[in-house]
Simulated scan of single mutants.
Amino acid sequence: MSGLYRKRSRRKELNLLPLIDVLVMLVFFAFVTMQFRSITTMNLTLPKVETAGKSELKESLTISITKDGGVDVNGHAATMEKLDELVRQLGTITKDITVVIRSDENTPLRFVTQAMDVCRKQGLNKIRLQSR
């Protein structure tokens, strides 16, 4: 009689719901911790400064200058004349913005000082030089 009352064994199933929950959390964590920063197209080698500290600026105007004097403003190609016009427009809106100047380590000082002078003429006096 014991053969007639055999218990049917259920096929074991893998519970996928907890696995899907974990994978969704991992993807969510990856998106939350990912830093979306605009990549500039200029190839600059910033000068190395041993005593430089880290500073993350929320609102800033970033001016990048190449070795040959090419100018890039917040990721967009420009000239010194265009920089002057943009800074003049920005100066009428606010004078409390930080200007970050990024230049190649082999950029002549005259290009950097020219960009600084353009900013100071419009009252933007919070100027920082970025290094690595």
Rank of each mutant, 00 (worst) to 15 (best):
M1T: 12
S2N: 12
L4M: 09
L4Q: 14
L4G: 15
L4A: 13
Y5H: 13
R8Q: 12
S9F: 01
R10M: 07
K12C: 08
K12Q: 11
K12E: 12
K12A: 15
L14G: 04
N15Q: 09
N15F: 07
L16S: 07
L16C: 10
L17G: 08
L17P: 00
P18F: 08
P18M: 11
P18N: 06
I20E: 13
V22T: 10
V22K: 02
L23K: 01
V24Q: 02
V24H: 00
L26H: 00
F28L: 15
F29E: 11
F29C: 14
A30P: 08
F31L: 15
F31A: 09
V32D: 01
T33R: 04
T33V: 14
M34E: 11
Q35L: 09
F36E: 15
F36N: 15
F36K: 12
R37P: 10
S38C: 08
T40M: 05
T40K: 00
T40I: 02
T41V: 01
T41E: 09
M42I: 11
M42V: 13
N43V: 11
N43Q: 13
E50K: 10
T51D: 15
G53T: 14
K54C: 06
E56P: 01
E56G: 07
E56K: 08
E59G: 05
S60A: 15
S60D: 09
T62D: 09
T62H: 02
I63T: 02
I63S: 03
I65V: 12
T66K: 00
T66N: 01
K67M: 08
K67R: 14
D68T: 13
D68E: 13
G69V: 02
V71M: 00
D72T: 12
N74T: 07
G75S: 05
H76N: 14
A77N: 09
A77R: 13
A77P: 00
A78N: 08
T79M: 08
T79Q: 10
M80S: 09
M80C: 03
M80V: 02
E81R: 10
E81T: 15
L83E: 06
D84K: 08
L86C: 04
R88I: 13
Q89W: 06
Q89R: 11
L90A: 15
G91F: 04
D96Y: 02
T98S: 07
V99T: 03
V99D: 01
V99G: 00
I101V: 10
I101P: 00
R102N: 09
S103C: 07
S103W: 03
D104W: 03
D104G: 08
E105S: 11
N106S: 11
T107E: 07
P108Q: 11
P108W: 02
L109K: 07
L109F: 07
R110I: 15
R110P: 02
R110V: 15
F111G: 04
T113G: 03
T113Y: 10
Q114R: 04
Q114A: 15
A115R: 01
A115H: 05
A115Q: 03
D117E: 14
D117R: 05
C119G: 03
C119D: 02
R120W: 01
G123T: 01
G123N: 05
L124Q: 05
L124M: 09
N125C: 03
K126M: 11
K126F: 04
K126R: 11
R128Q: 12
R128Y: 07
L129Y: 06
Q130F: 00
S131T: 15
S131H: 10
S131R: 04
R132M: 14
